[in-house]
Design a protein around this nucleic acid. Structure first.
Lengths: 145, 145
DNA sequence: CCAAATTCTTAATCTACATTAAGTTTTTTA
DNA sequence: TAAAAAACTTAATGTAGATTAAGAATTTGG
């Protein structure tokens, strides 16, 4: 696959393809923060005076629209911002109060189209678990159904 | 203590006092989503057509400014929104990649003034752990220091 | 100011998920 | 298209934090 390129500046509006944002913990382990398919917006939402916490890259050949940093002062993109807030809120709620199995099932519903476009490793990273745990979880899920 | 009252509508700008937002999981267990001391903004950030996921109430006698729902179209509050995005992002990152101990230490730094104003039970709820685990964690922390 | 309720702590036991390790399958690339 | 690399699975073992239970400290309310 041909990468669109490493992106690490500010805010991207995805026209086509698939981006992700992720962080590295102190052990160097990757944790996917968000997937951004067509129509989504990704960026590091930190205030301008703080260093970035997220890396952003393309996991499919993608076309993105790079938004100006002061997008925040523009009204027309308010809907995209609100969507991000909603997604973030849900993620925190799931991480605080749901099991890995529940988070996986929620992921399936939220991103039905993405699930087949990313590796298991990435899904595990997004869920905050290891690929091994995801593998076990999926096997248990088949029996359950 | 005299409560300011149960709030469950939309967006609140805290003038003085302390609010919190929290969710209930399927077992009825409470998970604090966010604390909002003076100067902060809290609300349920879900898109208008979805049911609310968060409860909001005051844990100290508080004065709040109730913001109109369409605050999102107003520019002057952009800074408050960006701050919330930043806080949310950090919370997700901590929940995905840091231990309970690390989350507690991060909480101490982020909310030095709040730590003495809320119960241990609430702090545990915010961190996504039980009060018992927090108690043990704090004891371990004293020895470590 | 005393009784009742709630919060906090401690400890024993349990469990979901991590870690480690090894083998298998799929993908990449030369 | 073969070999190397990466991803995926399975299983054994380890561990952070949950659950349960009981007692101590603190807060609340009559």
């Amino acid at each position: 696959m041909q990468e669109f390129g490493e992106l690490n500046t500010k805010v991207y509006h995805v026209i086509s393809g698939l981006l992700r944002s992720y962080t590295l913990d102190k052990k160097g382990k990757e944790h996917i923060f968000m997937f951004a398919p067509e129509g989504w917006v990704v960026g590091d939402n930190i205030t301008p005076d703080l260093p970035c916490e997220l890396y952003i890259d393309a996991i499919e050949d993608s076309v993105v629209y790079v938004l100006p940093k002061d997008i925040n002062r523009e009204n027309k993109n308010a809907a995209a911002f609100i969507k991000r807030l909603a997604v973030l809120q849900k993620r925190v709620i799931m991480l605080m109060s749901a099991s890995a199995m529940e988070r996986y099932e929620h992921f399936e519903k939220t991103y039905p189209d993405i699930i087949s476009r990313v590796t298991q490793k990435m899904i595990a990273s997004y869920l905050g678990i290891t690929p091994e745990a995801l593998s076990t979880l999926k096997k248990a899920r088949l029996k359950k159904k």
